[in-house]
Amino acid sequence: MKAFTYERATSAKEAASAAARMPGAKFIAGGTNLLDLMKLQIETPQHLIDVNGLGLDKIAPTADGGLRVGALVRNTDLAADARVRKDYGVLSRALVSGASGQLRNKATTAGNLLQRTRCPYFYDTTKPCNKRQPGSGCAAIGGFNRNLAIMGTSEACIATHPSDMAVAMRVLDATVETVNAAGATRAIPIADFHRLPGATPNIETSLAPGELITAVTLPKPIGGTHIYQKVRDRASYAFALISVAAVIQPGGRGRLAFGGLAHKPWRVEAAEAQMPNGAKATAAAVLAGARTTSQNAFKLPLVERTIGAVFEDAKA
């Protein structure tokens, strides 16, 4: 870990302006991913701005009947919130399927969105990785890539986004609220928040440098049956091979988003029209354009079968 200076910010705007002022600054909230990466010098901030004191840890109703989740709401608290459990069950389910009790007690809503990939080559600084070191190459293509992406990949990167929470946020059409150093705020639809790798897999979100997430808002509840199905090798405390976040309405229509498939939570709205036609048709539409490797082609049938299981669960 490289040496860094540290400050505790007391307001969101102050934090954002400190980030703009200090070269190599990063925000730290839960720290569960950032410190992990700093120990390996994959992240090397020169200055850390601790945003835990900003008071962004509230969950409050919005005017249009939704919920505004503060950026610093811990995963545990978001999952345990009575309103979330009642009206946004898929989010609660996704949260508790991730990481461990200890990590969920620390990890925050904003931090979870900003989690970086678990690609083992990204994590090993002796190996090429375009995400970590632009232009160095991708060791995962042609390497150990069983767990990696099949949708929206590029010749530069086949990493996946590891979050469960973000998949549920995507299916719920959440909005990410931010503030910058000038105090300007903006609302970014979750669909536009994470990027596909393209030629610049090092750029993962649409956040500008120094821009701070202040909240994630959930639109008003849409009802339906909420399911989060996570498929993994170990029964717990493991990243998803794939996951399906589903909100299914009577009659079989609804929404689906997927984890473990892409560099971002994967959702194909057009494919949702196929839901009443069954898992096969739906999967075919979701997976159109898939590019698999010899090791991760199993994700294709896995997605279809898991969609089928989710549909069955929704009927039950």
């Binding site: 540290y6 730290i28 839960g30 720290g31 569960t32 410190l35 992990d36 850390l48 601790d50 835990n52 545990t76 461990s100 009790g101 200890q102 990590l103 007690n105 620390k106």
Partner: peptide
């Protein structure tokens, strides 16, 4: 694992100054 402010956390992934 330790218990901070009543909650269990991984003490390896948090800074002392926090």
């Amino acid at each position: 694992t330790v218990i901070v402010e009543g909650r269990r956390i991984n003490s390896c992934l948090t800074l002392a100054v926090m």
